[in-house]
Amino acid sequence: MSAAPAAEPVRLHVNGVEHDVVCDPDTPLLYALRNDLGLVGAKFGCGLGLCGACNVLVDGHPTHSCDTPVWAVAGKRITTVEGLGQDGRPHRLQETFVEAQALQCGYCTSGMIVTAAALLEREPEVDEAGVRRALDGNLCRCGAHNRIVRAVLCARPCAGRATGTT
């Protein structure tokens, strides 16, 4: 499928707001988000869809924004880590990641949270093995994996809110 030439703006529906972005329609969604819309939560990691640092939700599904052209998501519902919270409150995962101090450098964190948010939406009572499977496409080099898994498990509705750091 070939893309149209660059004249028409691409309409993107991001975090509940419609934006007209003037760019080549083959532009990876990641760059439109980061450079045109100022949403820098999604990160460039590999450009090949192999690390998950750039993950955003497209119609609720975790998607690599680094190799998804904007024309392919025009009119679809895009959610970035900045748009996960509601009514000015952070998403539960953003709270449990702080409580569990579930990162070291934090570069992979947005992609982790976005992927986990979709998982909990789909499978609110997921077990630990399920969390690990769901996050296998998200790479972490610092070795914060077990903290991240704990943070995701604590964000399940069944976990209640009685969590805390060590």
């Binding site: 990160k43 880590v81 995962l93 990641f97 101090q101 990162l103 934090g106 964190t109 947005s110």
Partner: peptide
């Protein structure tokens, strides 16, 4: 630094 990083704020 963690609050900025979980919110996706400009930090890097």
């Amino acid at each position: 630094d963690v609050p900025d990083k979980v919110a996706g704020r400009r930090r890097f």
